[in-house]
Write a protein that binds this DNA or RNA. Structure first.
Lengths: 198, 198
DNA sequence: CCTCTATGAATGAAGG
DNA sequence: CCTTCATTCATAGAGG
């Protein structure tokens, strides 16, 4: 249905479309990851995965659907949010640099020096150990769950895309993750992950 | 309870006057479209407008400024984003299969090839109704516009300008009326839009 | 029930 | 156009 404004906002948020309902009998609303799903996602993240490709999202979603209802966009959003919030927490140390530049506008507009928005979010310090540099082997799913013989060409289309240095993958069951995300994670050495389903 | 995020509903805050926001809760550093603005933009989009020219952006922005603070670049970005996200919603790279909770063997679907299987995005599978070929007469604003005599085709496939390029082009005081945009307007002749202010 | 936090979802804004 | 980052909105859920 288009524009189901069931929110309090008058804005035309098509918000409802998202989230699959909780497959476990939860009321329809937004996706609520199960503990298993969350475990896998977190492991992948800690293994260094930040911005999975469409194919990776698909496969992750497929695998996670074993544990409950999930859609690709849930995986996508999860990584987006998790990465952003991880960065946000790390950014507290930075000064309140206002990275905002208003363009030409004759209408008077009010500026507001925006501190680190210390209302609700980054008020907690997280001393979580960043294991991004850890090279670990993840055996997330049983290997007999899938057909490894399936050779899928990922992102192989004569496109003049300048692929970021995010991910280099091979057709083998192992693939390396390089990161160039600078501020977030420095990977001196490639991770050798056994994420066979990716 | 010191502060609560009061930005919850009511997007209609007319911050246009620059009301000085003393505690209006509108800490909006970025443009937040009002419902009226959003309606107009959506109508224009539904009418077929996809990539407005600089002049169209200028005029739209001018008109929308009646409803609240807005800049040209907001209009530009809105169309960019809306177009891209509409497309991405249309594209179903879904996890389309029904998730089975007791099986592991399920990757043998092998559908038809994808044309563009790139890196990220396109992970959504939102089905939202939208009538595309609606020929509607939009009388969005009172007819107080002017006639354009110069028809300049400033758009070409190679002329991929970001907003900065838009800014630069704005200097040239061009008036593009009825830009014979074949690609943007799905229906050039049948759709006789009364977008008089454009 | 109410407040507050955590987080899924959405979108404005850029960069390339 | 594509992808990504930053910010915001809305809500489920834990705690009072």
């Amino acid at each position: 249905m288009p524009f189901s404004v069931e929110c309090h906002s008058l804005r035309g948020n098509s918000h409802g479309g998202g989230g699959g309902g909780g497959g476990t009998g939860t009321k329809c609303g937004r996706w609520n990851p199960t503990v298993e799903q969350l475990k896998v996602l977190t492991d992948l993240f800690r293994a260094g995965l930040r911005t999975p490709t469409t194919d990776q999202i698909q496969k992750i979603s497929t695998e996670l659907s074993f544990y409950g209802k999930i859609e690709s966009k849930n995986v996508f959003y999860w990584f987006q949010n998790h990465k952003a919030r991880e960065r946000q927490k790390r950014r507290k140390i930075s000064t309140g640099f206002d990275h905002r530049h208003q363009e030409n506008d004759h209408i008077s507009h009010h500026h507001h020096h925006h501190h680190r928005q210390s209302s609700t979010r980054d008020v907690f310090e997280i001393n979580e150990e960043e294991e991004d540099n850890v090279v670990e082997t993840l055996q997330l799913f049983p290997v007999n769950s899938f057909e490894d013989s399936k050779v899928e060409k990922m992102r192989s289309r004569g496109n003049n895309h300048q692929y970021r240095d995010y991910i280099r993958e091979t057709n083998t069951t192992t693939f390396s993750l390089y990161s160039s995300c600078g501020a977030e994670m420095e990977h001196p050495s490639p991770l050798d992950l056994r994420l066979s389903f990716l």
